[in-house]
Each structure stands twice: as structure tokens, then as C-alpha cells.
Design a protein around this nucleic acid. Sequence first.
RNA 1: CGGGGCGUGGCGCAGUCUGGUAGCGCACCUGCUUUGGGAGCAGGGAGUCGGAGGUUCGAAUCCUCUCGCCCCGACCA
Length: 571
Amino acid sequence: MRLKKMFLPTLKESPADAEVASHRLMVRAGMIRRVAAGVYSLLPLGLRVVRNVERIVREEMTRAGAQEVTMPFVLPAELWKESGRWEVYGKEMLRFRDRHDREFCLAPTHEEAITDMVRGEVRSYRELPVNLYQIQTKFRDEIRPRFGLMRAREFIMKDAYSFHATEESAEEEYRNMYETYSRIFERCGLEFRAVEAETGPIGGSFSHEFMVLADTGEDAVASCTGCGYAANIERAEIGGRPRGSTRVVTEPGKIEKVSTPGMKSVEEVSGFLKVRPSALIKTLIYTTESGVIAALVRGDCELNESKLKRVLGTATLVLADEETVKQATGAPVGFAGPVGLKIPVYADRGVKDITSGVTGANEADAHLVNVVPGRDFDATYADLRVVREGDPCPRCAAAFEIRRGIEVGHIFKLGTKYSEAMGATFLDEKGVERPLIMGCYGIGIGRTAAAAIEQNHDDYGIIWPAPLSPFHCHMVPVNVNDRETLEVSERLYSELVEQGCEVLYDDRDERAGVKFKDADLIGIPVRITISSRTIAQGSVEVKERSSGEVRLVRIEDVARDIRGLFDKGKN
RNA sequence: CGGGGCGUGGCGCAGUCUGGUAGCGCACCUGCUUUGGGAGCAGGGAGUCGGAGGUUCGAAUCCUCUCGCCCCGACCA
């Protein structure tokens, strides 16, 4: 592609609204342009990258035995009413009416659509299993779209749905998809982790998220340095005894009330009473659909609401409002404690290790000291806190490390939630009608491209992993007004194109500096610089974007040299 | 939804407090010079100041309403 003819508007300055590298660089490199909040156009360069991700995804999905379909972006309300999600989905689903006043939505996901597609057609266990996928636009009316393609409202997603006669078959496909996803992100050249995840509102029994590791990731991933167990920080279990627990040798004294006027937070109380935060027992009052409960964690720890929810088995869990706290504890917010509480008390296991703790006294401006779990209050103990760096792994007790990640893929075992609700059944070997067992597997295509940049860039611009790069190589004739330079360049360009190399050829009459800056910004892995200076020695420069390494290559060898490079990058 | 902020040539911004000829940098066009890391000089084109209403002799600037956007938080694949 000749740059002179290409629609590639690069920017010297960064857009004001771009906070993260991928967003900033995608705009500056002329890949995307914003049309509305969370809604973007893909320019030629951006589309080429997206197509690369799609290509890898298609190849691997096909290899895994899945078949491509497409389903509509606009879906009728009836489907969602059947599954019960028309009411449940909330404002994330953009709804509207057509001219006949019929209700529709922009598809935020396609479980209903695929179940509808399959239910009429699959009748027998002989036709199972089947895995269907599409690469399609979705719309989720995010409260706060941000970070460009990373968290857009309209976005491209690969979503696959599998249907099975048996649990074993569903689990086998789950493993198959796990392997497939690992291959996909490996082929994209990304550093990632497959982590255990919360299932969220899509439902289902268990799931894994695929996280591209990057410091700017929105999620935190706890991964074990010993055995490779990895989990979303929302879910990560903590093994053994927590680090830094306060085991005190001295006999605990008698429980005692002390005055702590206006001291509510852990910092205030521990500072005021001159005790370490780890000696405090933080008491949080929550409202659930089955009543008010208290949850305890050590003062230096953070409660993990997902874990608490799972232990309680409740669907809703919200911090109680002031009024409720007052009713439950008899004290204003900030002075709750487990001693004498009449509501169920749940405590993190770390609390048990506190031999002489400080808690709220359930009255204004007072705390209790020398509080001993077991002696002064009872609680149901469980793993309830958020994992921290260095905590022990539940499998092998080695230390966890916490890293940031960008969720690019998610696989779920769905079970029969949708097939039952929507009557998608088949006849088994015995002629018994049973609901189809489903799995669902998503990859954010645009987000994967963004994550690749987030993970691979420097101060000058993008550094594409070769498999995602919009071009194989970038040719820069330093001065197109120099006859010899132009001749060599044109010849090289034809030669490279001839052998199937995708070349971005900067044939513009610009100064060298301008072209170099653009080349660094766009981030194609290999740059070929042609100038009279090296032509005099019969060669051109080949520069690697990632390392900055420059080699002189004889003109007649360039085509072969570059071919070697991009064959190696192919996979 | 709560809190904070912003809408001024394509992009980044100043001007608004204190009303009086719409400005700067980048980008763009023309010419000359320059040509290995975002060139120099000269000339030029381009803006209903987000929109509507009001106050005023006069509004980018003051008032009212409205639309859009951004940031922090709650929420989320």
C-alpha cells in the first residue's frame, strides 16, 4: 500500500479524552475515530488489525470444530421475554420500538438468539454436539464507556455457543475451548493468563477469563508463583494461615470499653488507641434479601463481597444504610462490633487469629478492647477477604502475585438455563425429551487489539506483535526526490509485493523525520530505510521496531530477508 | 445515579472573572529555500464561539433553559 494514497490520518498531538496508551495511540496512529461516546469508526489501519485478530480467531475456531454463523444485531423483545431477561437485563440493553410499535433491542449478547436458532432444528442426540459461533457487533449501553475500544458501548465480539446431550460432552467442549482460546492468544503474540472467574449475570456453573497482562488493566489477577493457579481477584481463594497474623503470647485481659469520640475509620481508631490496624476487627453491616447480617474482617484487610455472597447464598448484598445500621447495632455508623449483636455474624478466618482485638462497642463514640473471638462473640468463619500480594495459594501454599489484566476472553458452562426457559430440547437414546446443555465462549475482538497495544508500546508509539501488525513491513525512502532512492524503492516495493509481503510504502514527499516518527507511531515490526547513503554501499537499512536494532542488508537480499522475517512471524 | 469539569476553524488550547474588531500552536493550500528523527521564510483559506431564549446600544463573555462530552465513584463482558 502506498501511503500517499492511503487514508491514514496520523496526529502529532494526543486527543484530550484519551487516558490510556491504547486509546491515545489508536487515535494518533489513525486507526480509530470517535463518533459518539463509546462508539467508534475503524479506519483502514485499524480495520486491518481487527481483521488479523478475526482471522486468527476464525482459523482456531474452525480447527476446534466450530461453525460460523451470523445472527441479527437487532433482536425482538419476545426472545428476551421468553428467557426472562427482558426484565432482568436492565439499562445496559438499548431498547426501542419499530414503526409498528413492536419492541426490539440492540443485541448485548446472543444466548437467546442462538437458542432460538437451534431449538427448532436439533431434535436428536445424534445431531449433537454442535458449536456455532459468530463475529458480530454488540451493543451494551455502558454507564461509563472509556478507554477507546477497550470499553466501548458498540464493540465486535466473537461469541460461540455449544449444545450438548450430556454433561461430559459439555465439559469436553469447555476444555476444547479453553485450549483453543489459549492457542488464539498465544498466536496473537500476547502474554496472558487463564483465570478462574465469577460467572456474573450470564449465569452458569463455572468459568474462566482470559486476561492479557498489562499494568493498565481494569481487573486484578492473582496468580500463584508456585503452581500456576490463577484467579480473578474477585474470586481468588486464600490458603492456609494468612501472612502477618497477630498471634500474641500474653494472656488476653478482660474486655473493656474505651471512649473514642468521633473515631470511626480503622486509621482513626488504630491511631487514637495506638494499636496496629491488624488488631482491629472491622464490622460491616449488610442488607440481604433474607435479612441484615454482620461481616467481620481484620482491620488491615478488605472484605470480598463476592465471597461473602457465595457463603451467604444470597443474590443481593448491599452495605446497610445508616438507619439499618442504627437498628441493628444501636449505634451510628462506625461503632459496630460483634459483641452482643443479635444478627448473624460472619467472619473472615483471619479474625480468629486475633487474640486481643479492638471492635466497636455498638454505642456512639466507644470501642471495646481486649476482645477475644470465641470468648466474647461467636461467628461463622470462612474465607471472606480480598487476596493480597504474598498470600498463600490454596493449592500449594506458595505466594500469590497480583498483576493487572485486561479481560479479552471468557468461557462459561451455561447448563440448561436458556434451553429450559426457551424449550430447546432433544430426544436422547431412550427417546426421552431433555433440555440441551449449553456452553458459551466470548472474545472481545477490538479489546484484544487494544490490549495488544496496552502490552506492547513505548513513548514513541505502538510495537505490534507480528501476527496482529497491519502490515508486514514499512518502507521509508528517505528522500523521494532523489532519483536513485526512488528507483531502488520502487523496485523493492514491487519485489516484496510480488512475494506476498504486505508493505506500507511511505512514498510521500515528506522530510525523513516526519516519516520516521510516523513509522514509530504506527509500529509495524520491520522498517526498511532506503537512502542514497546506503545505496552507495549497495544496501538498505532494516530496523526492528521492538529492539531498535538496525542491520544493513544488500539490496538484492532484502526480499529474501524480509520473507524470512514474516514467515517466522506467521503461525 | 451522586460529585467535579468542559463545549471557541480538522486537532490541542487561550480569550469568559471585568461585555466593545474572534486569537495562538499544529494540520491544510501557494511560492522559494531545505532534505536521515515531527524544517525555515513569505503569503493564504477555514470558526452560526454546542443549541434555544433573554438582558444590553452591543454577548464567546452576563442570566434562564437545553443538548453533548470528559473525569472520579457506584455498576459491568
